[in-house]
Design a protein around this nucleic acid. Structure first.
Lengths: 376, 376
DNA sequence: CCTCTTTGTTCATTCTGTGAATTTAACTGC
DNA sequence: GCAGTTAAATTCACAGAATGAACAAAGAGG
C-alpha cells in the first residue's frame, strides 16, 4: 500500500504528464525536500521512472513519469459473450488479451477468471509479479465501495458481492464498476480527459450510458444512479420504453432504437452508417429518424450542460459516425437548447472507440484504486 | 487562521451536531489524543464550547458544540431594494438587522456597507470583536474564488471584483456568491441538509434558481453555471423566453410566469395562492395553468434526479404553497418521469422561507469560508 | 576558467498525530 | 458506603512527514 503523498504524486503525474520534481513539488504544495524523498521511494518501488532531461539555464531538470511496467492491471467486461479479459500496463496500454465464457453465476465467473488469468499473464512474464489489481465492468448499479452489484437487469443480480468473491478466489485486489462509469474513469486516467476536473462521458451504443466526473472524481450519486440519462423523459408522452415509462431518451436515440425505427419504417438498413447514406440520398424516412434521434440526444446533452456545466462532454461510440446528419442535428440541438450566453462554451467531442472499451475501462478501475485509492 | 484539522473538526460538528471528543475522533479518523488537543485549542479560541454532559456507564461524555458567540458573520443581499444586512451568529441565527439603499456601483456599495456596519454591530457589543467574515448574495455568475462577479444581468456587471473592493473598504474578509448557491450553502451549514452530502436546492420565486452540493461541497460547474435549470428546455418549441430561446422552465413554472399566464387568461389572481383557490373552485383556466407549471417543474426535478441522483431535493419558496394542485402535479410529474425502479427513492421536500433567505445565505457564505476555508 | 542559474539532495528541526499508560468520573452490585 | 467495573478524557514519550536552509550538481555563457 502507498502513502497518501505517494498516491497524490501519482495522481498529479497521471493528470499533468511527465514533470520535474520541482514542478511537481510546487503543484502539490510541498517542499522540494519532501518531493525528493517521495520520488526516491516510488522510483525504488519501480512505479516511477526518470525519462527526459530538459536542458535550460541552470541545472537540467529530469522529468518523472509513471513507469509503464510499474504496475499491471487486469480488466474484464461482463457485457459481451465471450467476455474479454485484457492486461493493461500503467499507461493504459493493452499488452495481452484473452477471452472466457460468460456466466451469470458469480462463483463460476470467479472460477473462470482464475482459470483464464495464467493464460493472460503468460504473455508477459514480468506482469504477474507486478499485477496490482483486477477490475470488472458490468451493466447495472454498483455500490460506492465498488464491491457489490446492487442491481443488474442484464445479469439478473441483486446485491451480489462479486468483487469479494473474485478476490477470495484469485487473491487479487478486485473492484467492479458500472460500464459507463468505467469508461469515464479510463478517459480520466489514460484518455482525453486526463487534466479535466469536471466532465461527463456519454457512451453511445445499443443503449446509452453516462457518467460524471466532478472535481476530478467519479460522482456516483446517492444510489449509484448518477448519469442514468438513458431514461430521462425527452419526448413527453412518447413511445413506451422497456423501463415502464414513456419517451425516454433510450427509446429515440439509442443505436438500438434507431435501428428499430428504421425497421418499422421498412428501411433495409442494418447500421447507423447505412441509414446516414440513405439520408444523404434523400430518403425522407431516414432523414426523419436521424433528425428525431439527433434532436433527442442533443436535447439531453443540452440538459447536461445546463444542469452541471461540465468542462467537456465526451461521446464515445463503437459503431456509427457523428459527422453525418445525426451528429450535425445533435450538435445543433445541443447548442440551441442551452442558455444562449453559454452556448459554445462547453466542448462536445465524439470519439470512436474499439471493442476493448469495456475491458479497458474495467482495468482502469483497478488502476484508479491503485493510484488514488478507494473513494472515501 | 485555523489549521486544517481545526477546520475539519468544525465541519464535522456543523454536520453531525454536538458530539463527544471520542465520537468526533472516531468520525475524523484521529486518535483521542489528537482530538484532545484540537478541542482544547478551539475552546480556548472561543469557537467551541462544552455543552451537555451525557451520563452512562463509565465516565460521562461531554458534548462539544460550536459556540454560538464564537464568531459572527454579516450577510448582505443585493437582490432587493433596500438591500438587507443581517448579523448572524455561529449557529445561523440572525441577531441583528439593518438595511441600506441598493446601488449598481460597486464602490458605492462598499461605501454604503461600511456606513451600515457600525449600526448593525451596535446591537451586539461582542459581535464587532468576533466578526469573522462578510458575505454578499447577488443574482449572476460568480467566479470560483467567490471574489469576482463574472456576469450579472440584473446589476449590469461584467467581471466586477466586488469582494476585493468591499474587503479593501471595510477590512473584513469578504466573499460573494450567486443567490441560489448561497441558499444551498445555508441549508448545508445551518438548515435541513446539514448531514446530507449530495443534494440540490431549487429556489422557487419570481425566477427559478438551483444549486448542487456534491460530496459535501458546493459544485459550481466549470463556468459557474451548474444548476442553471431555469433555462433548460422543458417544452420544446414552447413560448419564447427572455433569454432568447424557447420553452425554458422559467417561461412556464416560475412564479412570474404563472402570474403572467393568469393575467393573459384574464384571471384576477395576484398570487399563486389565489390561483390555487380559483383552481379548487373549478376554474378551468386556473387548473390548466397550474397543471402546466407543475408538470414542467416536476419534469425538471425528474431530470435532476435522473442526471445527478441526489440524496435530497429541497424546494425553497417565499410565496405560494406546495400542498395544492401545483405541488401535487409537480410531485406526480417528478415521480412519473424517473426510472420506475428509482421512483420514490429521492426525497423532495418543500420549505417555506422568510424574507431573510438571501441575506442569511450570504452570511452563510462567510461562515462557510471561516469553517471550511476557500474551495480549492 | 570562472560566474551565474536552476535543479535536486542532505540534515537538523518543527509539527502533527499515535499508542500506551494514566487519570477522571461516573455506574453497579453488595 | 465501598470496592469493582466501565468508558471518557488527558498526558507523555515517540514516530513520521514536511520544512527551511545550506549545499552539491550540472549545465549556460562570457
Amino acid at each position: 500500500m502507498l502513502t497518501s503523498s505517494q498516491q497524490q504524486l501519482l495522481r498529479v503525474i497521471s493528470q499533468s504528464g511527465p514533470s520535474s520534481r520541482t514542478v511537481l513539488a510546487a503543484s502539490m504544495g510541498l517542499s522540494k525536500a519532501a518531493m525528493s524523498g517521495i520520488a526516491r521511494d516510488l522510483i525504488a518501488l519501480g512505479v516511477l521512472r526518470e525519462t527526459e532531461t530538459i536542458y535550460g539555464q541552470g541545472r537540467p531538470s529530469i522529468l518523472l513519469d509513471l513507469h509503464p511496467e510499474g504496475a499491471f492491471f487486469v480488466g474484464i467486461s461482463l457485457l459481451e459473450d465471450p467476455a474479454p479479459l485484457v492486461l493493461s500496463d500503467f499507461n493504459g496500454n493493452i499488452v495481452a488479451r484473452q477471452t472466457m465464457p460468460l456466466s451469470r453465476d458469480p462463483e463460476i465467473i470467479a472460477a473462470l477468471i482464475s482459470e483464464a488469468l495464467p493464460k493472460l499473464l503468460a504473455e508477459r512474464k514480468d506482469a504477474a509479479r507486478k499485477l496490482s489489481g483486477l477490475g470488472v465492468a458490468l451493466s447495472g448499479f454498483v455500490d460506492e465501495k465498488q464491491e457489490s452489484c446492487v442491481q443488474s437487469t442484464l445479469l439478473g443480480w441483486q446485491d451480489v458481492p462479486l468483487a469479494r468473491i473474485i478476490r477470495q478466489k484469485t487473491g487479487i485486489q478486485t473492484f467492479i464498476e458500472n460500464d459507463a462509469k468505467a469508461v469515464a474513469v479510463s478517459e480520466k486516467l489514460f484518455g482525453i480527459a486526463r487534466d479535466i476536473q469536471n466532465f461527463s462521458v456519454v457512451s453511445f451504443d445499443d443503449g446509452i450510458g453516462c457518467a460524471h466526473f466532478i472535481r476530478g472524481e467519479l460522482y456516483r450519486g446517492n444510489h449509484g444512479g448518477a448519469g442514468e440519462i438513458a431514461h430521462c423523459t425527452i419526448e413527453p408522452n412518447g413511445s413506451p420504453c422497456r423501463c415502464g415509462k414513456r419517451g425516454c431518451l433510450d427509446t429515440v436515440a439509442s443505436l438500438k432504437a434507431i435501428k428499430e425505427m428504421a425497421k418499422t419504417e421498412g428501411l433495409a438498413c442494418q447500421s447507423l452508417n447505412e441509414l446516414e447514406t440513405e439520408a444523404s440520398l434523400g430518403n425522407a424516412a431516414a432523414i426523419r429518424i436521424l433528425h428525431r434521434a439527433g434532436n433527442a440526444l442533443g436535447l439531453a446533452i443540452a440538459h447536461l450542460i445546463q444542469f452541471n456545466d461540465p468542462g467537456l462532454i465526451l461521446i464515445t461510440h463503437l459503431e456509427g459516425r457523428f459527422d453525418g446528419l445525426f451528429g450535425t442535428v445533435m450538435r445543433q440541438a445541443a447548442e440551441a437548447n442551452v442558455l444562449p450566453r453559454c452556448a459554445g462554451q462547453t466542448p462536445v467531442r465524439t470519439q470512436h472507440v474499439d471493442g476493448d472499451v469495456w475491458a479497458r475501462g474495467a482495468a482502469s478501475i483497478a488502476a484508479h484504486n491503485f493510484l488514488i485509492g478507494p473513494t472515501p
